[in-house]
């Protein structure tokens, strides 16, 4: 059978790393180090993540793949290892679900003196939401039940700049910077 290279369906991903060290109990010789979450065009992509680990204190090039929706590790052929990892999976899911996320925000182009008004999806119910930046009369409203952050204000006379959205939940903080340009 011939292998056909799929050059058509390009999938460009970046991986965001979430530190696990000390937050998940080790199992025998395995220490769980971090989770790599795939992102595509700034948005989280797929329910799968990769859990990086050390074996006998040596960081491995390989990772354990995990389906976060199902709370299970994938592709583990060793039954004994699979049994051990099964107990760890819910702890990793809990850590991932405690991280608040800011949805897709595109860089903005605005007109002078025109009030801006846009909405940003925020997931995982953060405790604190704040917006900081050079907007006149900056107003933001976190609509918790809908998971939406509404931002209003007028761009100042600067021709370009950046404002930052910060969300916090317990000790987890997520920031996203949005560039804007005045035309």
């Amino acid at each position: 059978m011939k292998h056909i290279v799929d050059n058509v369906n390009k999938l460009e991903l970046t991986f965001k790393t979430i530190d696990l060290e000390g937050r998940v109990p080790s199992t025998d010789a395995i220490e769980f180090l971090s989770v790599e979450e795939p992102y595509r065009e700034g948005r989280r992509y797929s329910p799968f993540v990769r859990v990086r680990y050390a074996l006998n204190g040596v960081k491995q090039d390989k990772a354990f793949p995990m389906d976060v929706d199902k709370g299970i590790f994938l592709s583990i052929d060793d039954d004994a290892l699979e049994e051990k990892l099964r107990k760890i999976a819910p702890k990793i899911v809990e850590i991932l679900n405690s991280i608040p996320e800011i949805g897709q925000v595109y860089d903005q182009t605005w007109s002078v003196d025109k009030e801006i008004d846009f909405k940003v999806p925020i997931s995982n119910n953060p405790d604190i939401v704040s917006v900081h930046g050079p907007l006149l009369g900056l107003y933001y409203n976190w609509i918790k039940d809908d998971g939406i952050l509404e931002i209003k204000g007028k761009p100042s006379r600067q021709t370009s700049g950046e404002f930052t959205i910060i969300v916090k939940k317990r000790n987890q903080e997520t920031k996203k910077s949005v560039s804007f340009e005045i035309i």
């Binding site: 011939k2 991986f15 790393t17 790599e36």
Partner: peptide, 16 residues
């Protein structure tokens, strides 16, 4: 019954 095998890869992965 296995008639084709497509090779797939992640395009330019970058670790942040």
């Amino acid at each position: 019954c296995v008639v084709n095998c497509f090779d797939v890869y992640v395009d330019m992965p970058l670790l942040e």
